[in-house]
Every structure is written in C-alpha cells, then in structure tokens.
Design a protein around this nucleic acid. Structure first.
Length: 564
RNA sequence: CGGAACGUGGCGCAGCCCGGCUAGCGCACUUGCUUGGGGUGCAAGGGGUCGCGGGUUCAAAUCCCGCCGUUCCGACCA
C-alpha cells in the first residue's frame, strides 16, 4: 500500500484527552478517531489491526468446533423482559425511542431463542456457537480510549450441553483456546478465579492483563502463580486464636473512642481482639457483620454470602436500630438482627466490640458462648504483602484489565426462555449453557500498553497491520526510486503485505518518525547511501538493530524475518 | 449519579483573574524556493459563530445565570 495515496493520519502532538499510552498511540498512529464519549471510528490502519486480532480469535474458536453466527444488534425488548434482564441491566442497556427494541449488550437471549426452536434432542447437543460483533452498553463512564467504550467488538461464545460434564468439557476447551489466542497475540496475561456476579452460574475465570490503567484489582503471587480477583481473593493470614480461658463479659467505658485504632490505643490490646461491626439492610432485615480489627469488608464477598442485594444504613437508621452511632455498635443485645461473621474471627473469644451505647464497649465476648451467629463467611479484603494461600509468599495487589471472561452459566437462561431438550429417556430438561467473552479492542489496546516505547508502537508479526514498512528515503534520486519501486513490486508478488512510504514531499526524518510510530516490525530503508553499493538497510523496530544487505536478498531476508 | 477541571481555526495551547484597537502563538494545510538519513529552512497565504442560550454593560473570549459537550476522581461495571 502506498502511503502517498492512502489515509493514515499520523500526528506528532499528544491529544489532550488521551491519558494512557495505548489511547495516545492509537490516535497518533492514525488507527482511531473519537466521535463522542466512548465511541470510536476505526480508520483503515486500526481496522486492519482489529481484523488481525479477530482472525486469531476466529481461528482458535473454529479449532474447538465453534460455529460463527451473525446475530442482530436490535432485539425486541420482550425477549429481554422474559429473562428479567431489562431490569437487571437498567440504564446500561440502550433503549430505542420509536420502537420497542433495545440494542443488545450481549446475546444469551438471542442464542437461547434459536436453541429453543431447533435443539430438541440430546442428539443435537453439544454445540458451540459464537459471534464476533458489536455490543452496545450505555456505560456511565467510558474511559481509557477503546478499553471501555459504549460500543465495542466482542467475541461471545455460548456452549450448549445436555450434561454438566459436557459443560465442564466445553468450559475447559474455551480456557485452552483463550490461552492459545492470547499467547499468539503476544499478550502477557494471567488467569484469575472470579466472582460470577449477577450473571449467575457456578464457575468463572477471568483472563487478566496487569496494567496501571486497569479497572479491576487482583492479587497475584510471583512465587507460585496464584492469582485471584479481589472479589474472591484469599490469603493465608492468621486467624484469631482462642485463649484458654473465656473471661466474663464486662461493659467498659470508652469515652470518645470511635475507630478501631483509637480503641486499640485506648485499651492497649492487640488488634485481633477487636471486632468491628458493620450494619446493612437486606430487604427489611438488618444484618450485622463482624470483622476483625481494621479488616476491610469486601462488598462482592458479602453479596455472595447474602445471596441478594443489600444496602448500607443511614446514620439515623443505625441509631434507631441499635441505640448507638457507628463506632459503638456490637453484637450483644441486638434484636431482630441476622449476624454474620468473617472467618478470620471464627472461634474467637475475649473479644471487644461495641455496647450499642455511645462511649461504651463490651469486653470478653466469646463468639461461641455469647452470640447466636447465622454464618461464618470469608468477607475480608486481602491486602498487599499478606501470605499467599498456596505457597505463603507475599502477595502483590495489582490493577488489571479484563481481556476475557468464561462462565459456567447453567440453566438460568434456558429455564427462563424454555429452551428444553429431550434426554435419552424422553424427559424434558433445560439446556446447560456456558458463556465466554473476549473484548476485541482490548486485545489490541492491551498489546500496545505492553509493547511501546518513546517513539511509538512495537507490533509483533501476529498483529502488525503490514509485514514490512518500505521506506524510500530520497525521492529525488532516480536510483533510489527505481529500486524501492521494484522491491515493492517484488515483495507484493511474494505475498508480503507492504506499507510503502513513497511520498516525495516528506523529509527522511519525517518518514522514520512515522515508521517508528506506526510500529511495523521490519523496516526496509532504501536510501542513497546504500543503493550505490547495491544494498538496502533492514531495521528491526523492536531491537533497533540494522542489517545492510544486498538488494537481491531482500525477499529471502523478509521471509526469514516473518518466520521468526 | 456525587466531586473537580476544561471547552478559543484540524491538533496543542496563550489571552479570561483586572471587560476596550483587526483574537494571538506553535504544529498541520496551500503556493514558491530550499533541504534531502531522524518530524529541514525561508517567504507569502487560506482557515475562527472564542461550545450553545440568556443576562449585565456604551462595550463581553473575558463578568453573572442556565444548558450542552469532553476529561479526571468516586459510585457502577454481566
């Protein structure tokens, strides 16, 4: 492709709205332009790269027997009413004003409606159905360029099975396919156990990429490779140990002591003896949550412990429910509360907690003796430096970008939409589903996040928009022009995809800067210096290494380079 | 949705606090010359409803009010 005739609008200056490297570079290299918040046009260069990413994904999906669909973005709203997801998505789903249609944010409903009409027998199963298409989500806050947009390409696949064992097989096939895709794309990723959240289902893993600009938080262990989303992460931190003797309960005066730190200072005791109380409302039931010391409650963990949504209490509500303000609330003497306790406190005795009376605490609480407890759960948030639950090395806490997510969905959607099949015994059963997503733009943006330098992007062969970047340095030199032209022709004949900088109105420095910015792995530089002795220069974008080679050996060199 | 900032030729910005000549600078663009291995140099040009609406004033890019847009922090994130 000739740069003189094609549209790759590179820019020198960094657009002020772009903060992260991938966003800045995608704009500067002429890959994308923004149209409005979270909505991007892909220009020819960017689209070419996006298609490369899709091709890798498609290839690995086909390899596990996936069948590609093209599904409608416009969905009748009634379909979404049936699964209750109009409400579940709420404002995140785009609604059309002049038809009862919504823009699909994902496609479980459509897949199910097809399955329901055509997969009637266990003999029709299993199936893997996938699509690589635009999804629409009215994100309240788009950010980080194409990493969180309001419309984006997603590879979504759905496994349809007759048995739970079959689901396990398809789930594992997807996990393996994902590893292959991301490895081929050159991404340094890790896999975490995750919360399946409101999506429902039994197991779920996320494919993550460590990045400062990530919106998820994960713990990772550099020792053994353990990694988990903070929503489910645990550590091998010591539990409360039980003193031999449980002392008698006593009320103690603690004037002006509100926080755990103040209490620790005031009583001069170890933090592990302190039980912090938090109050939530679930429907109309007040919930008291006990945490050790300064341990932070993780709301995702609480959500899975409670099973349904909850909210925190207003200050005046706290006072009327417990008789005290936050800071003096405790488990002793509460009426009508459900009490749940973090596992770290399990078995604890001689604990101090609020007395439900301002400025007073109760000492020597024995959880087994003094309180009726409705359950122990892991509720705390892991902190950096705590020991890994597998190997006890210190954990790191990192931000990460979610590239892909695989779920064992189960029968939630097939039940709601009556997608049933007949088993060997002629018995009607819901199809068992899995759902597996990948953010395509994220694959591209994440690659750039991990592969750039001060001059621009550094593509690998898998995602690079062109195989080689041919630079004709001196357009006024006939010999340079004729050699560059003949190399262009010859390379194209060898099926090499060439970006040819044949511009005659641009200085050499400008061309080199553009080449480094766009970041094609191999640059072929045709300049006066070398052609006079029958040579051209091959420059690797990643290493900066230059080889002077004979003109006749260019194709051979390129071939070898592309294989590596 | 809560908090904050910004909005001035295509891009990056100055001017605004303290109202007053024809709204400026760099990049990009056009033309000519120049240069030709790391965003050449010189010269001459074109391009602006100063986000939108209202108000104050003799006079508003500048002060006041409202709205819209964009970005950041938080909440949310299937």
């Amino acid at each position: 492709m000739r740069l003189s005739k094609n549209f790759i609008p590179t820019v020198k200056e960094i657009p002020s709205d772009a903060l992260i490297p991938s966003h800045q570079l995608m704009l500067r290299a002429g890959m994308i332009r923004s149209l409005s918040a979270g909505v991007y046009s892909f220009l020819p260069l960017g689209y070419k790269i996006l298609k490369k990413a899709m091709e890798i994904i498609r290839d690995e999906m086909d390899a596990i027997g996936g069948q590609e669909f093209y599904l409608p973005a416009l969905n009748p709203i009634e379909l979404w009413e049936e699964t209750g997801r109009v409400k579940a998505f709420g404002d995140t789903m785009f609604h059309l004003k002049n038809r009862p249609l919504v823009l699909a944010p994902t496609h479980e409903e459509v897949i199910c409606s097809i399955a329901k009409n055509h997969l009637k027998s266990y003999r029709d199963l299993p199936q893997i159905w996938y699509q690589i298409q635009m999804k629409f989500r009215n994100e309240p806050r788009p950010r980080s360029g194409v990493i969180r947009g309001r419309q984006f390409f997603m590879k979504d696949s759905y496994s349809l099975d007759a048995t739970w064992e079959g689901l396990d097989v398809n789930y594992d096939l997807h996990a393996e396919a994902y590893k292959k895709m991301f490895t081929r794309a050159g991404l340094k990723f890790f896999i975490v156990g995750a919360s399946s959240g409101a999506m429902g289902g039994s197991a779920s893993q996320e494919f993550m990429l460590e990045s400062e600009s990530g919106e998820d938080t994960c713990t990772v262990c550099d020792g053994c490779g353990y990694a988990a989303n903070m929503e489910v992460a645990t550590s091998a931190l010591q539990k409360a140990h039980r003193d031999n003797e449980s002392k008698a309960i006593t009320e103690i005066s603690t004037p002006n002591v509100g926080t755990i730190d103040e209490l620790k200072e005031f009583l001069k005791i170890e933090e592990r003896y302190l039980a912090k109380s938090l109050v939530f409302m679930q429907d109309k039931t007040p919930i008291l949550v006990l945490m050790m010391g300064n341990d932070q409650l993780n709301e995702s963990k609480l959500l899975s412990a409670l099973g349904s949504d909850f909210r925190s209490c207003h200050p005046d509500e706290l006072k009327s429910l417990t008789g005290a303000d936050a800071g003096s609330i405790g488990p002793i003497g509460l009426q009508g509360f459900k009490i749940i306790v973090d596992r770290r406190l399990q078995g604890g005795n001689n604990l101090v907690s609020g007395a439900n009376k301002n400025d007073y605490h109760i000492a020597n609480i024995d959880l087994q003796r003094d309180i009726k407890i409705d359950g122990y759960f892991d509720l705390r948030t892991v902190n950096a430096g705590e020991p890994c639950p597998k190997c006890s090395k210190p954990l790191r806490v990192v931000n990460a970008i979610e590239l892909g997510h695989i779920f064992k969905l189960g029968t939630k959607y097939s039940d709601a939409l009556h997608a049933y099949y007949l088993d060997e015994n002629g018995k009607e059963k819901p199809i068992i589903m899995g759902s597996y997503g990948i953010g395509v733009e994220r694959v591209v943006a994440c690659f750039i996040e991990q592969n750039n330098d001060k001059n621009g992007i550094v593509w690998n062969n898998a995602l690079a928009p062109y195989h080689v970047h041919l630079i004709q340095v001196n357009s006024n030199n006939e010999k340079v022009v004729s050699i560059a032209e003949s190399l262009y022709k010859k390379l194209q004949e060898s099926l090499v995809d060439v970006l040819f900088d044949d511009r005659d109105d641009v200085s050499p420095g400008f061309k080199f800067k553009d080449a480094d910015l766009i970041g094609i792995p191999l640059q072929i530089i045709v300049g006066e210096k070398n052609v006079n002795s029958g040579n051209v220069e091959m420059k690797s974008r990643s290493t900066g290494k230059r080889d002077i080679i004979e003109i006749s050996k260019v194709c051979q060199y390129v071939e070898k380079f592309l294989e590596s």
